[in-house]
Design a binder for these strands. Structure first.
Length: 212
DNA sequence: GATATGATCACCT
DNA sequence: GGTGATCATATCG
């Protein structure tokens, strides 16, 4: 079913180089109530090398971001907007503070269980979006710092079918360094939220733009 | 000690 | 396509 575990060596490059390689990998979640897994279809890179003001690690190893400075392959989980949990894979050598945010995936194992966790969600939306992905897999604060490369860990990262194509674009929802094309997605996959080709603001005097 | 803000989602029009 | 929900974290006084 699943491919071999991802190894630390594969995560040592810069996050924007590692990120596209995570597309198609499986994030597996073994729980008492059953196993769920998603095949990753959308990720974003956050660099701890000091050139990325949008990274949580940008202001140093604060208590929240401490896991980002740990060894590669750890799970960095953070709480967002007062209600959501989002998950990242730590990349790069220990001490750097880089990570890749897992933005979306398709549920490939345990669809029934994922639907129980997200009752009013269509199949396509089960793990579409970073907070939905963690909800579908049952990932939460207890998984902070989990070793995704350890075969004994309940949450693991395995190789899977590589994407048919990769599309890069700007990251979503951030206010700093929004121009860096560090968001990567499997081209045309239905679980990938639409690239906002035209988040262009209305300019005075600008007319309607064309069809999508 | 207080407050502004956010790597979002769901539901409204 | 706009906005309310809701709180940990960071930063300021």
């Amino acid at each position: 079913m699943t491919g071999p575990l991802v190894t630390a060596d594969e995560l040592l490059a810069r996050p924007e180089e590692v990120a596209p390689g995570l597309l198609g990998c499986w994030l597996v979640s073994d729980r008492p109530e059953g196993t769920t897994a998603v095949r990753l279809t959308e990720v974003e890179a956050y660099s701890g090398t000091g050139d990325d003001p949008a990274a949580h690690s940008h202001r140093g190893p604060t208590p929240r971001a401490a896991v980002m400075f740990g060894p590669p392959g750890r799970l960095y989980v953070y709480f967002s907007y007062g209600m959501h949990w989002c998950a990242n894979v730590v990349t790069g050598p220990e001490g750097v503070g880089s990570a890749v945010l897992l933005r979306a995936g398709e549920v490939v194992v345990g669809e029934e269980l994922a639907r129980e966790r997200r009752p009013s969600s269509s199949v396509r939306d089960l793990a579409r979006g970073p907070a939905r992905l963690t909800a579908a897999l049952g990932i939460g604060p207890d998984d902070r710092g989990a070793d995704l490369l350890d075969p004994a860990s309940p949450v693991r990262l395995h190789h899977g079918d590589p994407p048919s194509g990769v599309t890069a674009g700007p990251r979503v929802g951030i206010t700093h360094a929004a121009d860096l094309p560090w968001r990567f997605a499997e081209t045309g996959h239905p679980t990938v939220s639409a690239f906002r080709a035209g988040v262009r603001r209305r300019r005075p005097g600008a007319g309607q733009d064309g069809a999508p």
